[in-house]
Design a protein around this nucleic acid. Structure first.
Lengths: 239, 239
DNA sequence: ACATGTCCGTGGTATAGACCAAGTCGCTCT
DNA sequence: AGAGCGACTTGGTCTATACCACGGACATGT
């Protein structure tokens, strides 16, 4: 499936990319509308959109629904072995982090969670749903489960900061081990809606299981990231 | 950007997905052609394609150029902390791995590589380009750089197996530390061509830097994976 | 048995047009 | 100054059509 540059959308794509690199459009800025870009190249709107989709897949631009296409800011670097919490590592990279708690409720442990936490079915658990943003752009949503027995009254606290530090400072629960599964995915339905992106946009699914020193599961966390918002960096000794 | 199910392509997408889950189409099998799917739903071909693109982004189906759409096989699990080599861990998961060496040449160390390897500019390096497949489907391409001084004559060997084991058994060079950077990306140009996919398909870029016990860089490796071919799993102690 | 060539089906690209709903922004009224 | 409204712009969806290039199967020729 080689691409001779005879393909029009490749030409349009490279043209827009070059203008971004040249600094004509800067990170965070809006591109001209699809209909305007169309005029510049004398091509159909569908062709312009195909070019924009490719740049979106590359993480170079992103869209705000019915507002326009924008140049992506650089991604943040996330190292699961140095977990200090979203707020601090985003800030350390000179960006403005933000957290919204979408919901926090007590639920009963079901079969799946029972397996993960080694707790009886029906045991009380907290279910926390948050959205996190960088520089005002929503970049991830997460669903966190915490054993209520380990942190009674947790959801009474303000959870818009670092959950890990609340667990440690208030309940004395520390994290000693971290299991992280990563998988490219599509953002659909609920995730897409919460991140205000079009259903089907590529994303990264990240499942973290945090253990304390005794091997008990402290926190189980499903995260869905915009694919253009992060780079994962792991530095490890071979076992 | 909420999606009422009034959107036609959502309906078509969910319909096809349901038929896959129901077992009407099995992993590796071909779906009906776009024009046939169109007849079933009474919609335009563009709408069918929008639905197929979403399923592709989810990793549920993939395409072979001008041949058709196929149901994706399950992904393999890759744990960078348990690096035993592609061949063995794919086989351990009951799949059939394959490696092709696309090229292997000696090059001179340039400025970038000089930084990475702490070797003088101009020092001889080996540059190895491979394509790896699972069950006959190309899933990744990689570009490997090895310091020629550490492994003289390396490219005379058969490199279709595990490079790591050749380095260890023939040259006594072991890997003690592994730095891995992961980033969702788009497969474009060279990568897309080598993997025989359409330019712009989402992928996962993986950059590995392998160190020996003394902290010297042994191997520098850029990998581009099909996004639907792997799950990354990391299990680590918090520092 | 093995190349070679032809033909048809397939996805890939591109056009042109239409309508919609949500976002944006300026105007007006309070 | 602020709230509310309305016009306009924008991307999102959908139709219909056309042509192309590649893949694959089949037939043909050697």
């Amino acid at each position: 499936m080689q691409q001779p540059d005879s393909l029009q959308y490749i030409g349009v794509r490279d043209d827009i990319a070059a203008r971004i690199v040249a600094g004509e459009f800067k990170p965070g800025e809006r591109l001209p509308s699809e209909r305007q870009l169309q005029l510049g190249g004398g091509v159909a709107r569908g062709t312009v959109r195909e070019a924009l989709f490719q740049l979106e897949a590359e993480g170079i631009i992103y869209r705000k629904d019915r507002s326009g296409w924008y140049v992506s800011p650089p991604p943040v670097v996330y190292d699961p072995t140095r977990w200090e919490g979203f707020m601090s590592y985003v800030e350390a990279q000179g960006r403005r982090p933000e957290t919204e708690t979408l919901s926090k409720v007590e639920i009963a442990c079901d079969g799946v969670l029972s397996q993960i936490f080694s707790r009886p079915v029906g045991a009380p658990m907290y279910w926390i749903h948050r959205r996190r943003s960088i520089d005002g752009r929503a970049v991830l949503i997460e669903s966190i489960i915490v054993d209520a027995a380990r942190a009674p009254g947790l959801i009474e606290h303000d959870l818009n900061g670092s959950l890990t530090s609340v667990l440690k400072s208030v309940y004395g629960v520390g994290v000693a081990r971290n299991k992280v599964d990563m998988r490219p995915c599509a953002l659909t339905r609920g995730e897409a809606e919460a991140l205000r992106v079009k259903s089907g946009l590529p994303g990264l699914s990240l499942v973290r299981t945090c253990y304390d020193g005794k091997g008990n599961v402290v926190e189980f966390d499903r995260e869905y990231w915009r694919h253009d918002a992060l780079t994962v960096s792991v530095d490890i000794r071979i076992r």
